[in-house]
Amino acid sequence: MSAKIAVLGLVIEEPGPAHRLTAKLRQRLSSAEFVDSNVYSALSRLERDGLVRARASDSTSTDYEATEDGVRHFEQWLFASSSAPPLRDELHMKIALCQPRNLPRMIELVYGQELVCLGRVQELKRSFERLRPPDPKRWSGLVLVMVRDAELAFWESRLTWLQGVRESLEHMGAGFANATRGQREKPPESPSAGFANATRGQREEPPEQDRAGYQNASRGQREEPPEPLGAGYQNASRLRREA
């Protein structure tokens, strides 16, 4: 979504000066992370294209209002079908490409991302607390809550995914620890016994402190990873779904 169309929508809703439009944009579409200069450049482009015009106001600043072309242009955008959001995420790449020896640090990386998500939810909460509590029984309150919920649904699904990844990695780490100990105590049953233990032991907790367990796990991986992490992770996910 461009700042241009967002600013046009706000001008149609209520004509006003640039600084007021900037404040509104921040309140209403905080997730889009527009900066102040976006509003000013959007207004000059909209004016150039004949979609808004400046009009005299009582104060020293200039008010902007939409032209008929502007309203038509906005409605064309409003009712056009929306394209699907791109699904390209650096963390997906990191998980796809990481190795078993990376487990302990990947777990902390994923946990860090969980905290980032929670932080964004907290920021959203605070930005809403600065507004008058929206009344979902009124139109203005309902649309505000619906847009907020859309952003929250994104963070919720991201956090749920991250938690699932972390829990799977933690179980995998515990499995490695068991496998490593088993190797020291008796001969391995089969080349993939470590991962079989790992998937069986999904619900089993590491017998030692977590961090120590992960350290053992990563030491174990340097010796001989029985099969790629991806396969183990898929097994783990499949078993969880079946459970």
Partner: peptide
């Protein structure tokens, strides 16, 4: 998550860990 919006403070619980957002 929408139910978190009225709280003074929020946290999430998963895998036994209670995660708290970093200071703002």
């Amino acid at each position: 998550m929408p139910a978190l919006m009225h709280a003074h403070h929020i946290a999430s619980l998963s895998g036994g860990r209670l995660a708290v957002p970093p200071p703002e």
